[in-house]
């Protein structure tokens, strides 16, 4: 096993090209709702058992299902109200299960990228060919149901293999959300084609905030604002990216929605914040800054 993932090279925060986002914005803010489908009776995987209790784990299953019956609508309204579009991290089978949700998001001009087929199907134990098959399934499913090109990838339940990034680039995926090493987009070392890492953030992810860090709903609202303030100030030197990854079954709970909505209103009240989608950030970065960043990285290795 390698001791370094070999996916990116070191470049200190002070030695970056000066990124300026559209209209002079200092920070690009994107929201990535994970709209997920967890299976009632998923097949076993050698590396991870999907549910903590024996099947059927009705409490855990129904808790996730809350997102698709109740929570997504509240989350979407909060985003609408503040003027945010989403970049949906989508378990693509949701297109078949709940096309009503896909339609509502598509109508709002949201982006769809892939978060695997189901959140209960991991890539652990897959061959390269099997993993290629789920990428191809994602490309085809998203195109069929939304007409969109698949631009981004977040591995299902963050399950990765050593070849995953190469496969993504081979299939024309432009950005990965699985690398957490930076607050700016970065080139990823792939064997062919081009792939960048898009800042996604575990720290802002509602699952981590509520379930791992055990913060309250109101505190989540506070840390979103603090994260934004800091990254916006730093964007003066070189534009930063802030992501708010969400799960409608969590943030869409009645006791959680209001502090979140308030934090979005706060961000939207700043005219030097670019409210973007993942694909828009990737395209803008690739066109204007990829080469300069690659050169700066090469210089940093010298």
């Amino acid at each position: 096993m390698a001791r370094d993932p070999g996916l990116y090279d070191y470049i200190p925060y002070y030695r970056r090209p000066n990124i300026v986002w559209p209209n002079g914005a200092k920070i690009a803010v994107w929201i990535a709702p994970n709209i997920e489908f967890y299976e009632f009776q998923p097949p076993p995987n050698p590396m991870r058992t999907p549910w903590g209790r024996p099947l059927p784990d009705v409490l855990a299953y129904s808790h996730r299902d809350y997102g698709n019956r109740s929570g997504w609508w509240r989350m979407m309204e909060a985003m609408d109200e503040a003027g945010f579009r989403g970049s949906v991290s989508l378990n693509v089978a949701l297109c078949e299960h709940h096309p009503e949700i896909i339609e509502a998001c598509a109508k709002r001009g949201w982006e769809f990228f892939s978060h695997g087929i189901y959140n209960t199907r991991y890539t652990y134990g897959m061959s390269r060919e099997e993993e290629a098959a789920i990428i191809e399934d994602s490309v085809a499913t998203i195109r069929k149901w939304t007409g969109q090109k698949l631009s981004g990838w977040l591995a299902p339940a963050l399950s990765n293999n050593t070849w995953t990034m190469d496969l993504l680039a081979e299939h024309g995926v432009e950005y990965t959300c699985d690398l957490f090493h930076d607050d700016q987009p970065m080139p990823v070392n792939v064997k062919s084609g081009r792939l960048i890492s898009m800042p996604y953030s575990l720290e802002m992810n509602d699952v981590i905030v509520y379930n791992s860090n055990l913060y309250s709903a109101r505190h989540y609202g506070e840390i979103i604002k603090r994260q934004f303030d800091q990254l916006r100030a730093e964007g003066e030197r070189s534009g930063t990216v802030m992501c708010i990854p969400l799960h409608p079954y969590l943030v869409g709970q009645p006791h959680r929605i209001e502090p979140f909505a308030e934090a979005l209103r706060y961000i939207a009240s700043h005219d030097d914040a670019w409210l973007a989608t993942g694909r828009e950030i990737a395209a803008y970065f690739n066109e204007r800054y990829y080469d300069a960043m690659a050169q700066a990285i090469a210089a940093a290795q010298a």
Partner: peptide, 26 residues
């Protein structure tokens, strides 16, 4: 290893992946 059917999705269809209740939007 993964089962041969790991990439088969027998319940990939409209609505829920069981028959207890239909989907609806609150």
């Amino acid at each position: 290893a993964l089962g041969e059917d790991y990439l088969n999705y027998p319940w990939r269809r409209h609505g829920m992946d069981h028959d207890r209740y239909p989907w609806s939007n609150l």
